[in-house]
Design a protein around this nucleic acid. Sequence first.
RNA 1: GAGGCCGUAGCUCAAUGGCAGAGCACCAGAUUGUGGAUCUGGCGGUUGCGGGUUCAACUCCCGUCGGUCUCCCCA
Length: 428
Amino acid sequence: MTWYYDFMIIQPLKGTRDFYPKDMATRVWLFDHMRHSAKLFGYQETEGPYIEPFELYAVKSGEELVNEQTFHLHDRGGRKIALRPEITPTVSRMLAQKSKELQKPIRWFSIGPAWRYEQPQKGRGREFFQWEVNMFAANTPLADAEVLCVAASFLQSIGLTPNNIKLKINDRQLVEKRLTSLGVSSTHFGLVLKAIDRKEKIPASTFREMLHAAGLSDQQQQKLESLLSDKDLPDDAVWLRSVFDATKTLGFGNWIEYDPMIVRGLLYYTRTVFEAHDVKGEFRAIFGGGRFDNLVEALGGKENIDGVGFAIGDMVLTLLLEQNKKIPILPASPTKILVTVFDEKLVPKSIDLARQLREAGIPTELYPIATKLDKQLAYADKQGIPYAVILGPDEVKSDVVVVKDLLKRTQQKFLQRELVHSMESIAV
RNA sequence: GAGGCCGUAGCUCAAUGGCAGAGCACCAGAUUGUGGAUCUGGCGGUUGCGGGUUCAACUCCCGUCGGUCUCCCCA
């Protein structure tokens, strides 16, 4: 048997995950909270294809992401097709296609899988899920603040607090203004931002080398470093101050803090940028986002639509939740009532009870084998089914059923005709 | 693409050159109408795979495949 077994089980692909019922219950719990928070702020759910023309990603995504990390294939017409490595380009494309007719401002969100061909490691796989939230055509600090608050609202709803996780924000225009005042040429901004983005992960000497390569003198480097270590919001940060004020009024001010180190690696962010980090600093960024001016136009849209948004991956988030013991223990089974079967003769009686309960909308399972009661009850217990209905010869004689509460370890009798009514109030 | 660590029962792991084991899980019974405990028994292995060294290999060596973590890169 063993050789046969080994031969038959084909390993899942590297970096993919199986979701058994318990895992799936957790995933659904997580996604439900994402949906709920987005909808609470009026965001509408969208979904695009999981496969797209390869060129869609060449427009904006990083070079490495496109060429090295995209799963791609060729269709029979020779077209190069990519499994989406992120959701944003799909959303932008959908927006660009209908940008004229869509009523603005636009609040959209999307939850779905994405794929990247890379070495799996902690918090990173080849197949993962992203929750993406965007507001388009509202170029205001309030829009930025709202998007941040959708994220904070979600984090709060799954039991996290500002003690676990902080949303760190910055303004790229503020950074660029600083660099200009230091005498840094705008052609070097990209390299400098990249260096700042990496500063925490690299040795100080490497950081200085990167700045040097971007044309900064020793004096400019020192000034930049002192600016980066100043965590007080500068007086001239008018936009950021408005964002902060709005998040406070929206009720999530304590989740958000200014951090001059946050600049993001991607080029297309133009103003507010933010990242969420666990306070202990153990994990990579939980999510990131910011404001961009021109995504749609780059995709051939007829008009330039600005936007602000973020994307959260499920993997690092799950690690953080596990570490903080915030993942609830959820029953894998949706069943509220298990109807047991006493013996072959009474099977029809049990079937009838189960049918009545289902017609009342109560998720009901019927044990499909006439076996010993203890086995059936043990099954219900292990499945986390809260109630069991027992119908034996004694009950049939007096027209009653026994309803056992598996959690309280109690049981009581109901008249058969009253069972459904009684359970409706208890079990739903 | 580079490197570290690890592959032994369904799962977590022990056995460091000398009979391949434990806990958990699963099945059955103790209890012929009642589930989280307890006790008893049972099922379960080509020690990832291939080669080498040895009287003897889970153990040492080489190769290979797989997992995991880190670097690279990245939201």
